[in-house]
Each structure stands twice: as structure tokens, then as C-alpha cells.
Amino acid sequence: MEILLAITVGILFSASLYLILKRSLIRVIIGILILSNAVNLVIFTMGRLTRGAPPLIEPDAYTAGAGIANALPQALILTAIVIGFGLFAFTLAIIYRYYLTTKNLRSDAMNDSETPVPHPFSFGKKEGK
């Protein structure tokens, strides 16, 4: 079972990195979404995977029996999912807003804040407009 999940995580990681390196912003954020899911799966796997052994303590015992899965990573994942969801919603909104303002979704055309400035010594000479 661990092997299967490890392979799944590997595929998810490579798919997300492939998408993040794309030029289209939409693909980039889908890549981020897949990445966060891949990370969640890693944490899930780290908490051991067992079948048919719920993390419950018997009525007459103080500690849980052997072979149960650790429940804490699942709580961590829950927190991570909620946070990730909020951030993802914000990112979608900001990209949509950017699209409304500039009609552009290609990352290599995002140069508004990088406009090269002519060298200061050329001031006063004619600058082609």
C-alpha cells in the first residue's frame, strides 16, 4: 500500500512541477493545487497505513493497541487542506482580477513592473517615443 501511494505521490509531484513550469497562469495554479494535494498524501502516508484497525482505545486499556494508524497526521492534513483552500481561492481571485485588468494570462508577458529604465546619463537626449 505504501509503495502504491509513494508512486502516486511521485506522479503528482512531477505533474505539478510540469504544470508550474508552464507559461499559462491557469496551469501554474492548477500545478500548485496538485502540489498541495501531493504533500497532503505524503503526510497521510507518514502516519502509517493499516486496514481495519481504527485508532480507538479499548475500554479497559490506557494505551491504544499495536498496529493502528496515527490519527494526528490526518488532523494535520485537515488543517492544511483548509488553509490551502483559502489561499487557492485568493490566488484564483487575484489572477482573475489581473486578467480583467490586463487581458493577459501568459507569465512571460508579465513585464509591467519590470519596465527597463533608460540609463540616467541619457537623460535630456532624445528618447524614441
Binding site: 495554479i29 498541495s36 485568493f90 490566488t91 487575484i94 489581473y98 508579465m110
Partner: peptide, 15 residues
């Protein structure tokens, strides 16, 4: 315009 662009770069790398 510049802010939105700067934000997108900042958001993606930080996520």
C-alpha cells in the same frame, strides 16, 4: 496593474 503583477509572482513562489 503593477501591484497585481507583483502579487501574483509573490503568491506563486510563496505557495
Amino acid at each position: 496593474r503593477q501591484q497585481l503583477e507583483g502579487t501574483i509572482k509573490y503568491v506563486i513562489i510563496n505557495l
